[in-house]
Design a protein around this nucleic acid. Structure first.
Lengths: 233, 233
DNA sequence: TAGTGGTCTAGACCACTTT
DNA sequence: AAGTGGTCTAGACCACTAC
């Protein structure tokens, strides 16, 4: 009965995690019920619940009503990626940020974009190309299409001082997003913007966002050669 | 007083989120205290606490004791990446998985690896190269160095049927990991393994893991051309 | 229909941080 | 010293789902 007052849900969480990792509770096996664990640890069921909920969030266990809590068969832990606007990313690495608008015009949506965003073909969209620099070296080229129907204000927004990404987050935050990372090979134009040669490998982030179900924008953000996306967990 | 019994922490969470997104509570502003919100929503403080905790997890607000809860200035939402072993990723896309061990030998740690893993130079490490196939097409080339001091069993592990990644997760799960995604250009050998030509852009995942602070393994996993990492949030 | 997790409550005490 | 979030408790009721 030595008191371990302060801590508790963390104690439960870490001990359960330990038992899973040391195979005391093997993959696929059923854990004791919350009530049983609460008895064992001599704490409230809510405490056990929070511990197990966190482990479920992190991908260690799966929980189902009536069936109970099982150790996940396929270990797959979840990494968190923090995605900010380019300015923030640049400033976080202690570099000086500079932004430049390259091109901006209203176009009627080409077919591929209409499918991508699920808007009607020929819908009016704002097409923007801009560059982000870190210490005056190319950091990211951003090409973006914005659905004017969903964000009408954008048509007259001033995008000379602030990138469209930042403008959108301030004026019309998205509610759903899909992202994809891929590796691409620079074509001539991209290479020029990045100050490199055609064929160089670069990492590209494509993002589609919606606002309450309304398609809002599709963006391609290509990073300078050598850029890495990092995280830890 | 119309009852909205069932739901509640989600109601609070969504309403607070709505107020943040609609700028009723602007960026950087202070939210009401948990107690005040509990009164407003006519619920227990614990309910408000859970709602706000989730919003903090998702990157909408920042919380500090005594200071209170603030709307984050730099909107940066968190994306969750689910990282599984190659087999699982392949099977999830309904392809047939095949594994092949290419090379396996015990070497003394070269300098760069010793720094990467923080082990003593010339420490004994197991060096493994292997391939993962999806429907018999190259999916991923994995090159890995495993610290024998931390995982002595690996020296005599059978890696012919199962990849080292999967073996490690089953035998010695890591506790900390760092990952980095970057775009690389295939050299001749890599191109051969991937059935493509040198210079092709591919996405590479580098991962270093520790077990309770002990350096365990460093791995480079290079994906076939065109592979994308996707997620939504 | 019974068992398990999901959630809410009301109250309490604590820890951290600012003043 | 005081205010705010962090957490725990004991009990309750509900929702889902396997049986």
């Amino acid at each position: 009965m030595t008191a371990q007052k302060r801590i508790s849900f963390q104690v439960v969480r870490d001990e359960v995690k330990r038992r899973i990792e040391s195979r005391i509770w093997p993959q696929g096996s059923l854990l004791p019920t919350e009530t049983q664990l609460a008895e064992e640890f001599n704490c409230a069921r809510a405490t056990v619940n929070r511990a197990l909920r966190e482990l479920a969030d992190q991908g260690f266990v799966e929980r189902k009503r009536k069936s109970g809590t099982r150790v996940k068969k396929e270990p797959s832990k979840h990494a968190k990626l923090e995605l900010s606007v380019a300015r923030q990313t640049v400033e976080n690495q202690n570099s000086t940020y500079r932004y430049a608008l390259v091109e901006r015009n209203v176009v009627s949506s080409p077919g591929w974009l209409a499918s991508q965003l699920s808007v009607s073909p020929n819908a009016r969209v704002l097409h923007v190309i801009c560059m982000h620099y870190a210490d005056n070296r190319p950091f990211q080229l951003e090409e973006r299409w914005i659905n004017i129907d969903t964000v009408p204000e954008v048509e007259h927004a001033d995008l000379n001082a602030q990138g469209p990404h930042e403008w959108l987050l301030n004026v019309a935050p998205f509610t759903e997003a899909e992202i994809a990372f891929c590796a691409i090979s620079a074509d001539g134009r991209l290479a020029e913007f990045m100050g490199t040669t055609a064929g160089t490998s670069m990492i590209q982030l494509e993002r589609t966002t919606w606002k309450n179900g309304e398609p809002m924008t599709f963006a391609r953000m290509t990073h300078h050669p050598g850029y890495c996306i990092r995280t830890s967990y």
